[in-house]
Amino acid sequence: MKTYIAFLRGINVSGKHKIPMAELRELCDSISLKEVKTYIQSGNIVFKSELQNTSELESLISKAILKSFGFEVPVIVKTTSQLRDILNDNPFESEDEIIRKQVYFVLLNDLPKISELTKFKVESYENEEFSISDSCIYLKCKVGYGKAKLNNNLIERKLKVLATTRNYRTMHKLLELSY
């Protein structure tokens, strides 16, 4: 049995797509996910499963949420080793940046097309830096993510992929919970 981390996009934001975490854990138990833990209200689930395919797990969770809560929620699933690699590859790793809460991780569901990536790589945003890997865009938002122009919606629109964003603290906590 392998440990996975599911990232739900857009739940419990501004009163929309409300999913209580206790109900989400029960739902995950009902679809045979094991040792289910949630972290904060933004849709982070750590669980174990016999299934080995992250796409199958994404579909399983998404369909269960639709059936139970009546709305679609995009889901991105990563293995513990994928999450660890994402954190280890963070180019903005420094105590000063982390303390000021400037570092964010935009998790990508699919690889963007080369043509979209090429156009995106030359973009520039004041007080913001980014670095791109296969499964994540690392953001450094010098004035905070709330004021960032380079946000999840913009990245999804420009790269034409599903994405969800988490901060440094959340990513590290999820890795810790996965052990």
Rank of each mutant, 00 (worst) to 15 (best):
E97Y: 15
S68G: 01
E72S: 15
F69A: 10
I98R: 02
E72R: 15
L111N: 15
P91G: 02
V106W: 00
L83M: 14
N109S: 10
I99L: 11
D110V: 04
Q102I: 03
F105A: 06
I114R: 13
P74V: 14
L83T: 12
Q82I: 05
K113C: 07
L83H: 02
Y104N: 09
I114C: 07
N109W: 02
S81A: 11
I76F: 10
P74E: 13
N90D: 04
K78R: 14
I99G: 03
F69N: 03
L107F: 12
L108Q: 07
V106M: 00
S68P: 03
I86K: 00
K67E: 15
P74Y: 11
T79H: 04
L87P: 01
N90K: 04
V103F: 00
V106A: 12
D96M: 08
V75T: 11
V103Y: 01
K101H: 03
V73H: 01
S81R: 02
T79W: 00
L111A: 14
S81Y: 07
P74G: 10
V106F: 03
K101E: 04
E72T: 15
V73S: 06
D110E: 13
L111T: 14
G70N: 04
E95V: 07
L87Q: 07
T80G: 04
S68L: 06
E93L: 07
L108G: 05
K113D: 15
F71W: 09
P91N: 03
E93M: 09
F105N: 05
S115C: 08
L107E: 10
P112S: 12
L111C: 14
D89A: 09
